[in-house]
Design a protein around this nucleic acid. Structure first.
Lengths: 212, 212
DNA sequence: AGGGGCTTGTGAATTTGTTCACAAACTTAG
DNA sequence: CTAAGTTTGTGAACAAATTCACAAGCCCCT
C-alpha cells in the first residue's frame, strides 16, 4: 500500500467528525463539496484523500453519510475499542483523564500511573492512579495499546524508553521536548507552547508585512 | 517577504527549545548538524530554515548559542510579553491556566472567562474567572493579544465570532471541531481525539501491512 | 429509452517543500 | 602567510502534496 501522508489522515478525521455531526442531524447524503467547505479544503482534495482507500461515492449523487462514516471509522482504526493509559497524573494528565471526548470516540482510559506517592490511589473518572513501577508489567500483559504521556520533560525520554521496551506501539506525548522512538513505534507530540509560538510568529509577521 | 511554511515555524520552535536547553548548560556554540540531530531532521533543512530569515552562523565554526537563540526568539515574536486569556474554565482550561510552561516562554495568562455562574470567582494561579459577558469589552480595551479557547464544541464558533468581532488576531482552540475565522485572524486547533486517531490509523495500518 | 445535469474518481500539471552538492568564508596550525 | 580542515549559505535537482480538468457514471425527467 502507498504511504499515506499525515496531512491526509488529519483530514480524514475532520471529515469523519463532520459526517457524524450531520449524520446525527439525520442528513443522509453529502458531497465532496460539502465536506470541503467544512474541512477548510477543496472538493478535489477530499476526493483525492478518499481515493487512496477506495471509491465510496456515487457519481452524480455524492456520498451516503452513514456508509462513508463507517468506511472512515474502519480506515482510521475506530472499528474497535482501544485501551489507553495515562502516564503522569499531574494537571494535564488529570484533565485528560476526565475528558469526555475520548470515550465518545472509543478510547477508554483504563489506567493511570505516577511516581509521586502523594498521588497514588487518587481517582479520576473511576480510574485509580497506580505506582509507575507497575507500568511495564501492565503493558507487557497487553492491557494497553496506547499510552498518553504527561510527565515532566526531564523524565519523558526515560518513560518513553520503558514504554517502548515493554512493547507499546503508539504514544501521544504532551511533554514539551523532542523525543525519540524506534521506527516501529508511532509517536505524536502535542506541544502547547509551540502552538502559541506559531501564533506569535503570525502576529509578528503580520505587523511587519504591513510596513512593506 | 516570502511566505514561510508552517512546518518551518514548528521546526524553529524546536531549534529554540534545544538552544535554550544547551545554553542553560553553558554550551556556547553549536552546528546545524547538532540542531538537526536533536530536531529529527537534516542539517541542510536547518540551514535552509534559518536562511529564510538571514544568516546567523559563521562558516567553519557554526552558530553562537546565545546569538541564535536571540534571533529565533525575535523571529518567533518572543521578544516581548504576550497577554493571553483562557475562555472556558472547565477541566482543560483550568489545567492550562496552571501550566507553568507558558510563563516560561513569556505567555502570561492574565484572564479567564466562563458563562457558568458556579465557576465565577474561582481562582487559577492567581487569576479569577470572570463572567464571559466582560470578554468582549476586555479584548476591545487591548488587554489580550491571544485567546485560548476551551469551551464545549457547541459554543465554540459563537465565541470565536465574538473574539474576532472584538478584534483578537490569534486564537488557540482546543474544541474538537473545525472553526472558521477571517483570513487576518490566525487560528490553530489542537484536537486530542484527532491525535489519537492518527495513532490508531498507524496501528491499524501496521498490522495490515504485515499481511502483505 | 435517451438526453441533460450533477458529482465522482483520477491522470496530468502545478505548486510547495526537502535534499543535494558545492563554492565561499572562517579558524587553526605550521 | 599559506594550506588544511570545517561548516555555512544557497542555487539546482528532486520529491511530495495539491490543484486542475475532464471522462465516466449515475439519477431524473420527459
Amino acid at each position: 500500500m502507498k504511504r499515506i501522508a499525515e496531512s491526509t489522515v488529519r483530514r480524514l478525521s475532520i471529515y469523519l467528525s463532520f459526517l457524524e455531526e450531520i449524520g446525527a442531524r439525520g442528513v443522509l447524503t453529502t458531497s465532496s463539496d460539502d465536506l470541503a467547505r467544512l474541512g477548510g479544503t477543496t472538493s478535489a482534495q477530499v476526493r483525492k484523500d478518499l481515493s487512496f482507500f477506495g471509491s465510496f461515492g456515487k457519481r452524480g449523487l455524492g456520498y451516503s453519510v452513514p456508509e462513508l462514516s463507517a468506511h472512515l471509522r474502519e480506515i482510521l482504526g475506530l472499528g474497535r475499542k482501544w485501551n489507553v493509559c495515562i502516564v503522569g497524573a499531574g494537571k494535564i494528565g488529570g484533565a485528560l483523564a476526565r475528558y469526555a471526548g475520548f470515550a465518545e470516540r472509543g478510547f477508554n482510559i483504563t489506567g493511570m500511573y505516577d511516581s509521586d506517592p502523594h498521588k497514588l490511589g487518587k481517582m479520576y473518572s473511576g480510574v485509580a492512579v497506580q505506582d509507575i513501577v507497575h507500568l511495564e508489567r501492565d503493558i507487557k500483559s497487553g492491557k494497553y495499546q496506547i499510552a498518553i504521556l504527561t510527565v515532566p520533560p526531564e523524565n519523558a525520554q526515560n518513560i518513553v524508553d520503558i514504554l517502548v521496551g515493554a512493547g507499546i506501539k503508539a504514544i501521544l506525548s504532551f511533554a514539551p521536548l523532542q523525543l525519540t522512538t524506534p521506527p516501529d513505534v508511532t509517536l505524536r507530540t502535542v506541544n502547547m507552547a509551540m502552538e502559541l509560538e506559531g501564533l506569535t510568529f503570525a502576529l509578528t509577521k503580520r505587523s511587519s508585512d504591513q510596513q512593506y
